[in-house]
Design a protein around this nucleic acid. Structure first.
Lengths: 334, 334
DNA sequence: CTGTTAGCGCATTCAA
DNA sequence: TTGAATGCGCTAACAG
């Protein structure tokens, strides 16, 4: 690999000048600029990014901490982040935290030890206090999918309450009156918010939330399946169910089918997330879109603007979910 | 951030000694070793990985080139690679090539410019010749999911022919005699191999491949949907279809349902890949498992062993696909 | 506008 | 077993 010295020699200038044309910094006359450029071409010169980083104290890479690489959510998020960053010549590095506190901590150390210029993280196990601390000692932080009090302007999240609202509201407008709800773990803010939105929609339509029609589950397929079985077992009439995510909806659908209930004729179903699987279910699942790729892009924009000084679009903190109407919900009996 | 100098000062030794204990290289007396260690702890010292890289000419990171980050295949592959590498303290960096030659080329440049110690790539647009060239000038290369003549020992791939064979064979053993086939683009080796396996299974059962029952499609859902419509339109009897991947099977399923055919009673269906979506289809899709995560792990192992000198398990080039029996295929009329 | 030079933080000879 | 010195390739004052 050619070095900056060889280029400078070939072009008959100093390394400083070569550095200037590489980085577009300082003033260089067009003539010498061309000399340098052709020298670089002749040697197929490629700046050593590691040396650049060491000298400039800039790694030009940003760390992303996700729970898993595979899976619909994180893949889509990473995808959005990488696309934006890459277009700006920045490198995306990532690590997985598996929703386990110790691993999330360790992943942060790992990423930071690689001198990333910023950190975008999607963590669920870490406490707010730790995040605050990290925000004050490490590289600039961006938090996905979670609102940490005191760091609101660094948090990019979905308006989950509104998502829960629109899901239930659609059902209500279809004249359903008794609507069950399969929730995610209420220890998590997003699960709570979605349920609150559900309750608000009911209230606005003059209905009260019936606690017997709400089941707290775990965001997984089997959880949804079991929750639906439990709901049916309770033998309280209802004509529709909203599931706090698509996976649970898939499980619920399975149970309904096993028990011979037809969807949407006997039972309407709405999911949440608009994960890829929602298009493959039968009937195709009506759900609430989670614009995770765009949110990833936004995170990348923030970094590009605030860390690398590039001008960008306006920053948007909260994203609004939108209804995706497919076939799993139909008119109610009401 | 503390530097190695501060540690050496605090411990009363030279930086060389500190470097030795950091890397476990050279001989250091246990006593001074402890002094250094406690000095490092006291300062919460963290070696600067960039400086390490520059001095040692080792970035301790490996580049991975995929088509997309999201999507079942690449996410799972990345996941396997990252898990292994991370456990060994190595960083995984990635870039996307989108199956476009120019982008794949550029992605390689990008990754290499980051001084990765090895490159694992899943490329479809690049020609064999280019790959050969890259193999001879860049960092050690590993090629996923493709067999490049002359570089067989660097290619990790699935025995696609055998996969096609087992899929069709299962149907034959269920007494299907007229089996249609929806293929991927025959310009791609894996699509060709799968189709060949299909043909071999037929032949072994004394049947001939009926060209009218084979349609070349594009590995996408709508392609599968259209292909199935075309097959039905031809009005040649058949009782089962094997699709060269799960996405096309999903599309095919859709068409069958639209046309009022029941699965598996009127028509049996088998997919390929065992992508997540195959579990969500109704009926659940019988398919051929593609152990992509394990293949990613294997790639990482190779790198750990051949680039970083760690000893590992035996290297396996070709992976055998296995049948995943679910509900979309039933007994034939034969 | 251009060149000289001193680091960036660490690994690694080579001596001792 | 340890330390001094050199250089990895580049950036960024500073001087001219």
């Amino acid at each position: 690999m050619a070095t900056i010295y060889e280029v400078s020699k070939l072009a008959g200038v100093s390394v400083a000048t070569v550095s200037r044309v590489i980085n577009g910094s300082g003033r260089v006359s067009e003539k010498t600029r061309q000399k340098v450029l052709s020298g670089m071409r002749a040697l197929d010169y490629q700046p050593n990014s590691i040396a650049q980083s060491l000298a400039s104290n800039r790694s030009n890479c940003v760390g992303v901490l996700v729970s898993e690489v595979h899976g619909p959510v994180f893949g889509a998020m990473l995808s959005g982040i990488e696309a934006e960053l890459r277009a700006a010549g920045k490198l995306t590095i990532f690590a997985t935290g598996h929703n386990v506190e110790a691993k999330e901590r360790e992943a942060i150390r790992f990423l930071v030890s690689r001198n990333c210029d910023a950190l975008i993280m999607h963590v669920e196990a870490l406490a707010d206090a730790f995040i605050h601390q990290q925000a004050h000692q490490g590289p600039p932080l961006l938090i996905m999918n979670r609102v940490v009090p005191g760091l609101e302007d660094r948090c990019i999240s979905l308006d989950n309450e509104h998502g829960g609202y629109v899901a239930t509201n659609m059902l209500l407008e279809m004249r359903h009156r008794r609507i069950a709800y399969i929730s995610g773990p209420l220890a998590w803010g997003d699960a709570r918010a979605r349920l609150e939105g559900h309750g608000r929609a009911l209230k606005e339509h003059g209905l009260r939330l019936d606690r017997r029609l709400v089941i707290e589950s775990n965001f997984h397929e089997v959880g949804g399946s079991e929750a639906m079985a439990e709901l049916l077992r309770r033998d309280i009439p209802f004509s529709a169910v909203v599931c706090a995510n698509d996976e649970m909806a898939a499980g619920a659908m399975d149970t309904l089918r096993t028990q011979g209930r037809s969807i949407p004729d006997d039972m309407s179903l709405v999911g949440f997330d608009n994960a890829p699987l929602s298009r493959y279910l039968y009937p195709k699942l009506s759900t609430v879109n989670y614009p995770i790729t765009e949110m990833g892009r936004m995170a990348a924009h923030w970094v590009l603007e605030n860390v690398y000084g590039q001008s960008g679009a306006d920053f948007q903190n909260i994203f609004e979910p939108e209804l995706v109407i497919r076939a799993s919900a139909g008119p109610g009996p009401g």
